[in-house]
Simulated scan of single mutants.
Amino acid sequence: MSLHHYLVSILDVENNKSEEVFVEKLNTSAAIGNLTSFRHYLLHLFSVAERGTLSCSEKPISAVTGIHPPLKVYAKLEDVREDSIVLQWEPPQDSHEVYIQIKAISDIREVRKLFVKDATRFKVDNLIPGMTYDIGMATVMNGNLSELVTIQQTLSLEAPSNIHEGKVTDSSIEILWNRADGNFQHYEITCINCAAAFMVQKVFQEAATFSNLDPATMYTFSIHTEKQGFQDSTPHIKEIQTAPSAIEFMNHSRNSNAVTVNWPLARSRLDGYIISISSNSFLKEE
């Protein structure tokens, strides 16, 4: 028999419908498209002679087509928070369930697995601020999964809390705050109105001290967490005032019924002075 071409017969088992595909004799493989997702097919291969005679039918190949994955998986910028993310996707036709897996890149051994039905968006909570996650999503049909569609997403950084003053003198301010959770590199503290330009410190502990400040002056500080290559956390603003300058020295003179004291002008702006006079028998302030 002189070979003219091959013929592939594809039977849709569920609907009992078949179609045929012509394959040139020089080919030894064929891709058969336009099939239904997750459907059982039987495939017969025939050799066809010059006069159209078919070879005997061999045992058919039984095959189940794969499952279409979600068409698109994404998260809007405004839905990426410090400890949560809202995922959205476009499901394939006739899909009612998806599988979601979430892995932090710092520990890929720990995989969080979720199954979500009849939805096109889902909020994932209890994540680590500033952490980068590999997120995979697959379509589920009869307990079977499609290929994963994967995206990578980094959560927002967490800002420090409970920012308050520590030790304050007439020339320095110590700032303290609670430790921020999450995956970040350091804190950045900026004194916005120190001297003629910004004064910036990058620290790893929950404390920073700014020196060489003016007495009795209100200073404004901005504090946030940083991670290289990613958006900083939302800054927190704190105002703290330095103490008035101390009196450097004081002189006095006296007579039988009075004491006169004098001192140099303070270096800072003041509302006034308080003079305290005490003895074993009384205490007086003016």
Rank of each mutant, 00 (worst) to 15 (best):
S37R: 01
H5V: 01
N15K: 15
H44E: 13
E248F: 01
E14Y: 02
S47R: 15
K72A: 06
I173S: 03
A266L: 10
I67G: 07
I274T: 13
V203A: 05
N255G: 13
G272F: 08
S253R: 04
G166Q: 02
N255W: 01
E19W: 13
V98H: 08
T242Q: 07
K238Q: 12
A258V: 06
C194N: 04
F22C: 05
V80C: 08
I237D: 06
H236N: 09
K25R: 14
A216N: 15
T190Y: 00
H5C: 11
F221S: 07
D181S: 07
S18L: 07
S84N: 06
F282R: 09
F46K: 08
Q228S: 10
W177H: 03
S276V: 13
E78S: 11
R81V: 00
I67M: 06
I275T: 14
C56R: 13
P60T: 05
E24P: 04
T225A: 04
V149H: 08
N280A: 11
Q241N: 05
I61S: 11
M199C: 10
N27D: 13
S222Q: 14
F184D: 10
L145Q: 12
A195G: 09
P91W: 07
A30F: 10
H186D: 12
Y219N: 07
I10D: 13
G52C: 01
L213F: 04
H236S: 10
A196S: 14
T260K: 10
L3V: 07
N16V: 06
E206H: 01
T28Q: 11
L145D: 08
V259H: 05
R109S: 15
Q101M: 08
D125V: 03
S95I: 03
I274A: 09
N15F: 02
P60S: 09
Q201E: 15
A30L: 05
I105F: 11
S268R: 03
R81D: 08
N126P: 00
M131T: 14
S18F: 12
Q241D: 02
N183K: 14
P91Y: 05
L11A: 07
K76D: 14
L71N: 15
S172W: 02
Q201N: 12
I275K: 04
E147Y: 04
C194T: 02
E174K: 05
V116P: 08
A138F: 03
T120S: 14
R51W: 03
P235L: 00
N144V: 00
Q153F: 02
Q201D: 10
S18Q: 15
D83P: 00
L11V: 12
A49C: 09
I163A: 03
I100Q: 13
K167P: 01
P91D: 08
D79L: 01
R267G: 07
M199Y: 08
I175C: 05
H44A: 10
D94F: 09
L213H: 11
Y187E: 02
D107C: 08
F282G: 03
M250T: 13
F184N: 09
G272A: 10
K238S: 11
M1A: 06
A119R: 12
D181M: 03
A216W: 00
I189N: 04
W89T: 11
I85Y: 02
H252P: 00
T209E: 12
T209Y: 00
K238L: 04
T28A: 04
I275D: 05
T242G: 07
T36H: 10
A104R: 15
D271L: 10
K103C: 11
D83M: 00
V140S: 14
A49E: 14
